[in-house]
């Protein structure tokens, strides 16, 4: 711990100020979140008070959420689809990212730009062709139908390429001399060096799928396949939105992703010591 700490120690009073400012900033950051949480404990006569503390805290929204809706079922759907997508993305995006960072071949730049260009079309314009595809393949209203468009992402490929770039070429060359084939080099040598990026990617991809709304809505019609965001949308109608229920659902939905974040975040910071990110 170290030099950066020792370096920071020289400005010790500044450190206290910095910590305090960071902490206060963090508290301000979560204020809107606290409002959401507070609203979930209010009944609908108090919802529009905007007080941080409910006058008459109640758990009835939570009871309603679990008793009157299929929330547990939506939760499982979300968990399944998000997990499958995350695993697939971690594998393929790092494979492609590695290939684009460490192999020299004709067309590399073009492939990279092409994959990057997938980020430039809004999902809204893709759902119609995807729907036609899913129908042709018989995937409508199945978990596979929800999952398939997200199995690989330009975002993850780009992130992994940037991080694989920093893996020293000497290491790879040495592994080649040891008789490892290219797949083994990627899997056994390079992958362990980018654990932080993989952890960050895992968090972001899981989160992205956890909150995805449009495609899961379009791809499913059975209530049993609904993911959490699609299920929660039923609380917003033409005439009224039951905000206390939306807030309750959103609060509960945050817990698993918070768990995933806490699970992976230490790897982001601790795993990095091996490899530096170089230009």
């Amino acid at each position: 711990m170290t030099i950066s700490l020792a370096w920071a120690d020289r400005v010790a009073p500044g450190r206290i100020v910095a910590w305090t400012v960071l902490f206060l900033g963090g508290v301000v950051m979560i204020l809107p979140f606290v409002y959401m949480l507070a609203t979930s404990f209010k009944d609908n006569s108090e919802v529009y008070d905007l007080s941080l503390l409910p006058r008459h805290p109640t758990l009835e929204n939570y009871v309603e959420l679990f008793e009157k809706t299929a929330f547990a079922r939506w939760f499982l759907s979300s968990l399944l689809t998000s997990t499958v997508t995350t695993i697939s993305v971690l594998f393929f995006d790092s494979l492609v990212g590695y290939t684009l960072a460490k192999f020299d071949f004709r067309g590399r730049g073009l492939v990279f730009v092409a994959i990057l260009s997938t980020l430039m079309i809004p999902t809204e314009m893709l759902v119609i062709p995807w729907y036609v595809m899913a129908k042709t393949m018989g995937w409508l209203d199945t978990y596979w139908g929800i999952v398939f468009p997200g199995l690989m992402t330009g975002f993850g490929t780009f992130l992994m390429r940037q991080f694989f770039d920093s893996v020293p070429d000497d290491l790879i060359a040495a592994a080649r001399l040891d008789g490892l084939n290219e797949f083994q080099i990627w899997w056994q040598v390079a992958m362990p060096l980018v654990t932080p990026a993989l952890s960050a990617l895992a968090i972001f991809v899981f989160l992205g799928n956890w909150t995805a709304f449009l495609w899961p809505l379009i791809a499913t019609s059975s209530k049993s396949l609904y993911t959490i965001p699609v299920g929660l949308a039923a609380f917003s109608g033409e005439y009224q939105t039951q905000w206390e229920m939306v807030m309750t659902g959103a609060s509960v939905a945050t817990l698993p992703v918070l768990f995933v974040f806490i699970l992976f975040q230490k790897y982001i910071v601790n795993g990095v010591m091996l490899a530096g990110l170089k230009g």
């Binding site: 950051m29 979140f33 939306v246 945050t254 918070l258």
Partner: peptide, 20 residues
């Protein structure tokens, strides 16, 4: 501290837009 700053990223826009 890190969790405090990351928390907003975990929320859904539909719910948080209402608060904002």
């Amino acid at each position: 501290l890190r969790a405090l700053y990351f928390l907003p990223h975990l929320t859904t826009a539909a719910a948080m837009a209402w608060v904002w």
